[in-house]
Amino acid sequence: MTAAISIENLKKTYDNGHEALKGISLEVQPGDFFALLGPNGAGKSTTIGVIATLVKKTSGKVAVFGKDVDTHVFETKLDLGIVPQEVNFSQFERVRDIVMTQAGYYGLSRKLAAERAETYLRKLGLWDKRMMRSRTLSGGMKRRLMIARALVHEPRLLILDEPTAGVDIELRRSMWEFLTEINRAGTTIILTTHYLEEAEHLCRNIAIIDEGEIIENTSMKRLLSQLDSQVFILDLINELFELPNDTPDGVTLHKIDSHCIEVEVSGSRDLGELFSYLGDRGIQVTSMRNKTNRLEQLFLAKLRDE
């Protein structure tokens, strides 16, 4: 199967000598929901910039659905939708005009552009704001407008560079639903995000990039299975005076306060056994949560290993 995106030995050195990409190679399959993670300055936005032709690569190859972005400019750009990290539309234009204009750049007739603009502005909850100047929109609305704009030509591959940064949780979740829906409908999605919960929730495959190099490229499931242990915070119904001293193998308990304990459980342990053990000792649990996001735990471990 032809990859939705194929990157071969991509290098980018900026004029100031900064080596942003040190020869990365990556493939994303059609229909995938792919996470590209990395700390600030790792090279994520440079990679996206090269794919979008906003950044000139130093060497290497980038192909979109099997076509080289240098030689098949028209086809590859038509297949791509880009949602950048920073707001990049005119602050003086009306919301609908921004989407309509972008449709025009992609060669859509006025009639089709109007239909598509209505479809995507409605889907992203911006139809009521269509006649407003874009500068009057909230941060979340601006991000949704950039998504509507990137989708107006219905690309096969959508790349989102931190689309939910600074967006409140309710809106973030509605954006997740929307992205899941268009991914199910067949659009390949590549996502960069700082919210690792977001990547874990949405993406099937993942690459971690650090200092211009890919340090991990695998499926989300396989990556999460690498976790040696998980740490949970348990809120207790009754007051706990002393921790039991006969903890089973692979379980470590720490008291946080009289109504809260931290439990570290090795990857192979059955959580049912843990709850039986606690119940037998009169410790009743009212709620449980991960201390840190699982992916975040792994992500930090990977970066430390490098």
């Binding site: 906003l54 038509l78 005119s90 992609y106």
Partner: peptide, 17 residues
């Protein structure tokens, strides 16, 4: 220049124009 300043020129640069 205003397109450059607001980065809306990127709308054109990423499009097949």
């Amino acid at each position: 220049f205003s397109h450059k300043f607001q980065r809306s020129v990127e709308e054109l640069l990423v499009a097949p124009v």
